[in-house]
Design a protein around this nucleic acid. Structure first.
Length: 456
DNA sequence: ATAGCCTTGAGA
DNA sequence: TCTCAAGGCTAT
């Protein structure tokens, strides 16, 4: 295989063995190529003696041809590339596709290197490959007691703490088998990406071919699975706010209402983090340190992304769906709030101009959460590792989904810096307010505001 | 049946 | 002429 230069580092998406070149639509190993050819040429039919979800790896690939063939199809091997006339040599119609995929890979690797990221086999191997375990999963011990408690939320959500009662995977091998099976799932990717208007020229939009690089990175699929249901969160927050207004007599839509709402938003931000892939593997103490550091960034991103998605010029869309007139909000406000609103509007515009999509927003959340600048985190290497994986997945996604927009990744990272600046401003604003005087002291907003200033 | 190596031949 | 992804061959 002297001619393999860019593929020799890859692993077969079916079994994890070394790739020998492009075969039937994508980079696979020699044995899966042969297996696929035999199966199609001889019109074989197999049956599975288990539950049709056998794990296929290098050592077990012979065990269940049924599941192996299913996996071949799932990762995108093309039946039509097996020639009915058995003609040898020459080229088929996939040739140009292979070439494009090669160029894309090269481009990706160059960009990865320029960003100081290691060039890996696949951006998504880390989750699915049975042959490698680049992620250092911490050994989870019994959950220590938390310090974040809130009577308000205890009552509301019948949990005595945000960080207790987490169910965790004890096995460090949990992620070796992806819940979705394949390294890439073009079908799933299509469903998530939706229409193809923003992905001009992409192979998987033509409906004819899906080389592995053009589907949604598996990591992103995992992230999307962690998302909370937006409408459900909205209705829960509306319900809780109505309940509190009834109880405490905080009527109207003044500042108090805003703080209560922010408090509720924070509750769901913490809930999202707690249930999220990677984060839930961390020790509670590390989870707290990370959240204490980034809650306001996440809050700012949540607000900004809502404006990008639903907002109109001159108004602020709240998590409850209500619209607030911005001039009415700003006119009586102090200079800090005015700046905050102005910077926020600028960021919303920047996001719109960049056409930041939902997938990229989700990556942002994980980049914010897994901040390597947070001090005294016990499992720092884990945080670094996750951050690098998110970077890689985001880069891969932007290159595949927006090939005409080569520096989108860089632009996105710059946006993230602006978001952090906005968040700092927002936190400053919140600190300047006597929130305790406005709302009951026992709230998450207060807790997080104080936690940051008492720690370090 | 599997999988590593060999041969073929259209297109760059 | 060279490349490299098809199909073919064969020991295990």
């Amino acid at each position: 295989m002297q001619y393999m230069s860019d593929a020799d580092l890859d692993v077969c998406p079916v079994c994890g063995d070394a790739v020998s070149g492009y075969h039937y639509g994508l980079l696979t190993c020699e044995s899966c190529k042969g297996f696929f050819k035999r199966t199609v040429q001889n019109n074989k039919s197999y049956t599975c003696s288990e539950t049709q979800d056998c794990r296929i790896d290098k050592t077990q690939r012979k065990r269940c041809p049924f599941c192996r063939f299913q996996k071949c199809l799932r990762v995108g091997m093309r039946l039509e590339a097996v020639r009915a006339d058995r003609m040898r040599g020459g080229r088929n119609r996939f040739g140009p596709m292979y070439k494009r995929h090669r160029a894309l890979k090269q481009q990706k690797n160059a960009l990865l290197q320029s960003h100081g990221l290691k060039v890996e086999y696949h951006a998504t191997d880390v989750i699915s490959s049975p042959t490698r375990t680049p992620l250092n999963f911490p050994n989870i011990t019994t959950t220590p007691s938390n310090t974040i408690t809130s009577d308000l939320h205890q009552q509301t959500h019948s949990s005595n703490s945000f960080f207790q009662n987490q169910t965790r995977y004890e096995s460090p091998h949990h992620y070796h088998v992806s819940p979705l099976g394949a390294l890439y799932s073009p079908i799933h990717a299509m469903a998530v990406i939706g229409d193809c208007s923003g992905i001009s020229g992409q192979a998987h939009c033509s409906g004819s071919f899906s080389p592995q690089g053009s589907a949604l990175p598996q990591l992103l699929v995992e992230f999307l699975h962690c998302e909370l249901d937006e409408l459900q969160v909205q209705s829960k927050i509306i319900g809780r706010l109505q309940q509190m207004q009834g109880e405490g007599g905080w009527g109207g839509y003044g500042e108090t209402h805003m703080y209560l709402m922010v408090d509720q938003m924070l509750f769901y931000i913490v809930e999202w983090a707690r249930g999220s892939v990677f984060f839930k593997e961390l020790k509670v103490s590390d989870q707290m340190k990370l959240l204490h550091h980034c809650w306001c960034d996440l809050l700012a991103l949540d607000i900004v992304s809502r404006q990008v998605q639903h907002g109109r010029q001159g108004s602020l869309v709240l998590v409850t769906g209500q619209e607030v007139d911005l001039p009415a909000l700003v006119t009586p406000a102090g200079p800090l709030l005015r700046t905050l609103v102005q910077k926020g509007q600028e960021l919303v515009e920047a996001f719109r101009k960049l056409q930041v999509d939902r997938n990229e927003m989700v990556c942002f959340k994980f980049l914010i959460l897994f901040n390597t600048d947070v001090k005294h985190v016990e499992n720092q290497s884990f945080v670094e590792n996750v951050k690098e994986q998110v970077h890689r997945a985001l880069l891969e996604y932007t290159l595949c989904a927006f090939p005409q927009f080569l520096d989108k990744f860089d632009q996105l990272l710059l946006c993230l810096l602006d978001l952090r600046a906005l968040s700092t401003l927002a936190e400053e604003y919140l600190c300047s307010k006597d929130i305790c005087g406005e709302v009951p002291c026992n709230n998450l907003l207060n807790e997080l505001l104080h936690a940051k200033h008492h720690s370090v």
